[in-house]
Write a protein that binds this DNA or RNA. Sequence first.
RNA 1: GGGUUUGUAGCUCAGUUGGUUAGAGCGCCUCGUUUACACCGAGGAGGUCACAGGUUCGACUCCUGUCAAACCCACCA
Length: 889
Amino acid sequence: MSKEIPKNYDARLTEDAIYESWEKSGFFNPDNLANSKWLLANGKKIHKLLARRQKTFSIAMPPPNATGTLHIGHSVMLAIQDLVIRYHRLQGKKTLWVPGTDHAAIATQTVVEKILAKEGITRHDLGREKFLDRVNDYVKNSQGIIKKQIRKMGSSCDWSRERYTLDKGLSEAVTEAFVQMYEDGLIYRGFRIVNWCPRCHSTLADDEVEYKPAKEKLYWLKYGPFILATSRLETKLGDTAVAVHPKDARYKKYVGKKLKIPGVLGEFEVTVVADEAVDMNFGSGVIKVTPAHDFVDYEISQRHKIPLKQVIDEDGKMMSNCGKYAGLTTKQCREAILSDLQKMGLIEKIEDGYEHNLAVCYRCGTVIEPLPSRQWFIDVNKPLDKFGGKSIKQKSVEAVKKGRIEIIPKRFEKTYFSWMENLRDWCISRQIWFGHRIPVWYCSDCNEKKPIVLRGKPECCPACSCRHLEQDPDTLDTWFSSGLWTFSTLGWPKNTKDLKNFHPTSLMETGYDILFFWVARMIIMSVYLLREVPFHKVYLHGLVRTKSGEKMSKSKPETVIDPLDMIEKYGADSLRLSLLIGTAPGNDVKMYEEKIAGYRNFVNKLWNISRYILMSVEEIKLAEKQPKAQTLSDKWILGKLNKITDVVTNELEKYNFSLAGEALRDFTWDDFADWYLEISKIEKNKDAILLYVLQNLLKLWHPFMPYVTENIWQNFGVGLLMVQKWPRASKMKNLSEGDFELIKSLVTAVRNLRSEYKIEPKNKIDAVIFAKTKLKLIKEQEDIVKSLGRLSKIDFYRKDAPKHSARAIAGDTEIYLPLENLIDLNKEKSRILKELSEAQKYSAALKKKLENSEFVKNAPEEIVDGEKEKLDQTESRIQKLNSQFKDLE
RNA sequence: GGGUUUGUAGCUCAGUUGGUUAGAGCGCCUCGUUUACACCGAGGAGGUCACAGGUUCGACUCCUGUCAAACCCACCA
């Protein structure tokens, strides 16, 4: 029976249809995986195991921002997670992968505001409601694109459970979390200095601030009796103190005094304090203290009870208390003050090119203005009775320390600890419109300023019973809601079946760049709200970079590799392989088109292996049991298959995707295609084994490249590959691996000599082999050796070496190819001499090792024995080389 | 300032508890019989595993230091 199969695999023609058949099958949904009735109705012949699924495996997909499109970084996460999910599904587990999107508050609002700016309007022109309509429209559109892209990658996630952080259920989770934390006294409202982005018009959490190096001017001021430096002249208007180091003898006499300092708005008073935060060896050892606009200064002011004077407002402009400077931007003000100070002769000197780090907003790059503001915070250090006096921070550290969460690779645990241990109170309120509104109301009638915090909207003020309630205008930090992701997606706060079955999730897989932003916050939230970890394992992948190691960035389009382009050109399987193989956990990956093309070649190789088998077998059928080995090569390939099955399984269990893939590729291409398939053309009648190995290979490869394997599998007509049973290695005895290796090296040696003497493959030649103890073995495999070595006949019984011949040694055997006039005896001699000297060097090294009594004494026995055997082999090789050489004289 | 990672063949990278005559893919050179595949096959060249010490019978692998590159955290006026 022969089948028409195209010579080259064309991913474009098949991938979409295959995805559709997976999706239609319902098997992305774990409920269907366990429902035997459902299976009987829809599947053809599906393994019984499906009906008995007990164990679960779950992953919450890190929700891409509902803005824009997916980039290659998303492809990495999808490739890895889908691999893991498919592997566990094949292992027979109830496997759930929950997809979704994140509203990404500031990021999304910023994008839409930019679009509005092009139309010449701001969000204030539209008003809150209409603006949110615009944002929601935008989000809907981009969610559509994202979902399509996730499907294109082949992701087997359960679309019926798809979630969005602003969904009703998830919003209820957010409110519930807020209320619980408020009631436990973990959430409080405080007036303090925060990171403020004047463009976003909002606070930012500490880790949403980025630092970039900048060169600025450093101004040295005459400041009463002091000389001190600042780069921010405009903050002088908010100075309320001067600080020196407690041990600094130079300034001791001023400490505790109040001084009048001449300034651009007349004299002002500062207190001189002594504080450890000052470095007496840096600059003049004196700093001016502006508590309202600098974090360090704020802390100093707290310690010494120094008043706070705000001079910069939320637009980044000077406030009305700044006299003639009021209304200027900080930059304008700085210049104005500079020229005024110069007129007054208060500038000592100006240093140019002062290098320091500028704090900027991680979303829009605007310079951060620290300023005091009334905001909501989470107290991360408050001891809680329910945790035996421990704080949520301590509990979160504990979860990893006690091994309830394992981070892969392990080195990131250290990073996690140091971040968590240094965590300060988390500012969770944002002054933007897009996001979860803070569930807090205030009464505008009564004087009761106490916030009203309820799970639903309050009917009336509990104090004065009026109905004039206003909700806090602020929204919550986007990470507050995504911190709940692993359980809010499963129905929390309701006590759902999904929550019971699938939480804690089995694995969190994400880039190391959001370990702090997200992973740490999920741990805090889950540990506090559910009293359990959100996931058992965290696998962190690296960033995708260009071939030269740069970050791919939108500002340099030529550096960006668009996953959809690559899928269109090479297929999703090739893209996936290029992201999964040749990488190590947590290490960055360099990506470039040639790499993907290389894997496309491999996908095509697997296609052609299958093509050959399907076209040559008598009957295409399922080979469920391991067939009996008839020949040496059969034993060898089945033994190797068993071995590789174990290797792949073990490596996947250890999250070593790359090692699993490499081993599997080597087996597929080198062992199976290049040797066994070729031998199958000689020995014939191998249908059962060919089908068996192929079918196992398809299963083993499926998690890596689901499309092409599923495509090929469809030839067997037994349902979908994605829900078959993962292979188990059978224990085989008598693998005869060494015997087969000898045959391989015989063939290789012959090929080598042929190549050396440029004998074209079409010229079959004779050979003389001194087979020694291996005579029986080689005679049994004579057809293979002859065919693969392009030999017309082999003489096993000749006693003397033919003089004019090319010679080689394979194991214990000697090979002679009589080539009469082609042979250049001198060339032969020098080749043998070269080999001889290499062998002698090797033998000398081995001897030296074995003569070392320390080695023999200390090394394990099997190592010593191994070295002895190597020495024996090398010695016997030397002997043979010598005799071959002598023959030539 | 504190921390992490990386440095292995021309390029991209594997090498998991210390024992291989150091591997793969791409690229390069030579040759192409065989209707699975030229997105292929056969053969080959190419590395003192950044450098210097140390531990050890034995180091690409462990320790210390140096050099180079990248990143994270903190941030000093």
